[in-house]
């Protein structure tokens, strides 16, 4: 039974991202800014570092592919980027430490890299036209902000949960 806890949480967060964008009232924030929730990515990064590396990468690939199919309809982008960035994070964490602050910071950098690559891909395939300054201004900062809030609230409990699951295995 315990084995299904993690996939269930991840699937839940996968659906939550879509509802989050759809339902959070826009008037609260400035309407121009774009907040991209990367909660699933954060959880996968934490799983890779604290739980099980191959499994984390596998989750990255599976949920990346799901993201491509269900949400963006451009195949491959997230499948590739989720896996790659999660791999880079776990690689960097081995060199640095697995302190929770370091990992949180690393995953924020990971989100930055991820957003940047997605922006690059979209620029190339012509589904956006905004300039890089504007991209930094209206996308990166709000996105990093909202994901840092998520980290502040959920990073510690999630790490604890992963530790528990790890012991039971």
């Amino acid at each position: 039974m315990k084995r299904f806890v993690l996939p269930l949480i991840l699937s839940f967060v996968f659906l939550l991202e879509s509802s989050f964008v759809d339902l959070v009232p826009v008037d609260i924030f400035h309407k121009e800014n774009v907040f991209v929730p990367r909660f699933l990515f954060l959880l996968i990064a934490f799983t890779t570092v604290y739980f099980n590396k191959p499994m984390g990468l596998l989750y990255g690939a599976i949920f990346g592919l799901l993201y491509d199919i269900v949400y963006t309809e451009v195949l491959g982008v997230y499948l590739f980027l989720y896996t790659l960035v999660v791999y880079l994070i776990s690689w960097a964490s081995r060199i640095l430490q697995t302190n929770i602050f370091v990992i949180s910071f690393l995953s924020l950098i990971g989100i930055f890299v991820l957003e940047f690559c997605v922006y690059g891909v979209n620029l190339v395939i012509g589904s956006t036209t905004i300039s890089i300054e504007r991209f930094l201004q209206i996308r990166i900062f709000p996105t990093l902000l909202i994901n840092s809030i998520f980290i502040l609230v959920f990073a510690f409990p999630f790490k604890k949960l992963l530790g528990k699951l790890h012991i039971e295995e």
Binding site: L15, E17, S18, S19, F20, V21, D22, V34, V36, P37, V70, Y71, T72, E73, V74, V118, Y119, N122, S127, T128
Partner: peptide, 12 residues
């Protein structure tokens, strides 16, 4: 649902 990355403005 709505595409969370908001690059492709797509709703389901």
């Amino acid at each position: 649902g709505r595409n969370p990355d908001q690059w492709h403005e797509i709703i389901t």
